[in-house]
Design a protein around this nucleic acid. Structure first.
Lengths: 262, 262
DNA sequence: CGCTTTTTTGAGTCTAGTCAACCGCAGTGG
DNA sequence: CCACTGCGGTTGACTAGACTCAAAAAAGCG
C-alpha cells in the first residue's frame, strides 16, 4: 500500500534518513521529485543493487533498461515456478519470500528478500523460474530484462562484475544455508536466523536491535527446516533466557552475544 | 594415478565408448594424439563444460586460455577456504567434494563433483573461496583463469550465456539440496542421493544401475545432513527391501521406481 | 464485534542421534 | 608368516530432540 519499508523501523530518525524516499521526502537538490523518485540515482538502495564506479552515461543506460516500480500486493507473486524467465527484479520497497514446490505438495521457503535484494536469478539456467517469489507485504520491484542486462554486461565491465557478484553471492548464501540445515540444532537455527536478519537490517540502515518480522512462524520454520511450533518454542526459550524480548512479530534483541554463543 | 573415470564403470563397453580418451584411444581422425588428448575438441566432457555453437576460432581462443590437466592426488585440495579466487576449474578426470568449515570445527560437505562439473564459482562474490575442494580420488582438472573468462564473456555471447547458465545451475542445484535438507526424512535423503548420482552418471554415459561410490558413509552423511550410521542403516534397509544390492561402496540399483517412491 | 489466522503451550510419540561393540580389510613391522 | 593397528562400515541398545496432535490464547481483519 504505502511505501512502508521492508521491516518496520523502530528508530525513525535513521529510517527517514535512509529509507526509500516517498514523494514528499525527496531532497530539495532534486528538481523534479515525482519522476526522480523512480530513478536509480535517487534510490536509497542504489549502493546495494548497483555497481560502483559507473560513469553518468552508463548509469543512465542502466536506468533506461530498468522498468521501475511495479507494485506487488501482499500474497501476490512476481513470478511463479515454471514461468518463463525474462527479467530479474530488484526489491525497491517491501519484502518477499521465495518458495520451491515439490511434486508431492511439500514446499519450502528458500529465502527472504529485503529491499535492495535481487530476485529471479533462479531462472537463468533453465530459462524457467524454479520457485515462486511472493510478497510478504505490499511491495515494489524494479524490473530488469535479463537479456538487456546481458548485453550491457558485454559492454561495461563493472556491470558484468556486479552481475557475477550477485550470482556468486547467491551461491555462497545458499551454501551457508545448507550448512545451517545440515548441522545445526533447532535452537541454533532460530538464533542464526535472527542474527542474520539483524545484520541485513543494519546494513540497510535500520535498527539491528529491534524489528518487526513480516513472515509467519510457519514461514520461518519452513526456511529453517523445523516446524512452526519449534520456532515458537525457541523464541519463548530465548525470552526466558533473557536473550530476546518478543511480542508476536516484534522482536527486540537483548543479548546479541548470547545469541551468537547459542 | 591412471586415468580412472570418476566413478568406476560396471559396463565397460559404454565406458570405453564415452570416457575421457587415454592416448591409445584417441580417434584416428586426430593427427597428433599426445597433444590433442589435452585439447577441448578431444575432451569427452566438452558437451558438459563448453557451450555449443562456437566457431572454430572461438573454440581455439577458449582452449588457449585454459591450462589443461593439473593433477590432484586423492585427499589433496585444488583450493581451500579463504584462498584468493583466481580460477575456476573443470573436472576432467576423477571426482571431488566441496566442504565448508564453520568456525567451531563443524564442517559440511556441500557437493560432490564429477568429471565435466565446474568448481570454484563460490569465490566469485568475495574474491575468496568459501570452501575446500578436495579430490576423492586421483583426479585431473582444467584451470580456467576467471578474469580471462570474463573478458571472453564480453566478446562472445554464447560464452557469456554458458557462464551464466553454469552459475544459475549452481543456484538451482543448491536450492534443491536445501529442500532435501529441510523437508526430507533420512530414508528419502539417501534414496534421493542415490537417484541423483545415478542420473548424473547416466548423463555421462556410465551405467546408472551399477556404480562405485568414491566417498565414505561419513561424507555422504555430511552432505545429507545425517550421521554416518544413519546412512549405513538406510542402505541396509534398502537392501532388505530389495531396492538395492550393496557391497561396501559398490551399489547396484535393483528397483529404481521403488527408490523414487520412498 | 465475530470470524479466521496465527501463536503459544502441553503431553505423548518417534525419528535420528549417541555410544559402544564388532567385523573386514589394508598396511606395517616384528 | 602372523600379530597389530587403523579405518571404514554395520548393527544394537538406549536417549534426546524435534515432531504430532490438541487446546486455548492472542492477534488480525472485514
Amino acid at each position: 500500500m504505502s511505501d512502508v519499508a521492508a521491516f518496520s523501523v523502530i528508530s525513525p530518525a535513521l529510517a527517514r534518513q535512509q529509507a526509500s524516499p516517498t514523494p514528499g521526502q525527496v531532497p530539495a537538490s532534486v528538481r523534479a521529485p515525482r519522476k526522480d523518485a523512480l530513478r536509480c540515482t535517487a534510490c536509497s538502495m542504489r549502493s546495494i543493487c548497483m555497481p560502483q564506479g559507473l560513469t553518468p552515461e552508463e548509469l543512465q543506460r542502466i536506468e533506461s533498461l530498468i522498468c521501475p516500480s511495479r507494485t506487488i500486493k501482499q500474497g501476490e507473486a512476481i513470478y511463479r515456478a515454471n514461468d518463463s524467465f525474462q527479467n530479474i527484479y530488484a526489491v525497491r520497497v517491501g519484502s518477499f519470500k521465495t518458495v520451491v514446490m515439490h511434486r508431492d505438495g511439500r514446499d519450502q521457503v528458500t529465502g527472504f528478500h529485503l529491499a535492495g535484494d535481487s530476485l529471479g536469478l533462479d531462472g537463468v539456467c533453465s530459462g524457467h523460474h524454479s520457485c515462486d517469489a511472493v510478497a510478504l507485504e505490499d511491495s515494489k520491484v524494479c524490473i530488469i530484462p535479463f537479456h538487456l542486462l546481458e548485453t550491457m554486461c558485454r559492454e561495461v565491465k563493472v556491470v558484468q562484475q556486479h552481475v557475477h557478484r550477485m550470482m556468486g553471492g547467491e551461491i555462497v548464501r545458499e551454501s551457508s544455508q545448507m550448512m545451517l540445515l545440515g548441522t545445526m540444532s533447532a535452537e541454533q537455527r532460530v538464533a542464526t536466523f535472527l542474527l542474520n536478519l539483524s545484520d541485513r537490517l543494519r546494513m540497510r540502515g535500520y535498527s539491528p536491535g529491534e524489528f518487526h518480522l513480516r513472515m509467519t512462524r510457519e514461514e520461518i520454520g519452513s526456511y529453517l527446516g523445523v516446524k512452526l511450533e519449534t520456532v515458537s518454542r525457541m523464541l519463548s526459550k530465548f525470552q526466558r533466557d533473557g536473550l530476546l524480548d518478543t511480542h508476536g512479530k516484534d522482536i527486540r534483541i537483548l543479548d546479541h552475544e548470547g545469541l551468537v554463543r547459542v
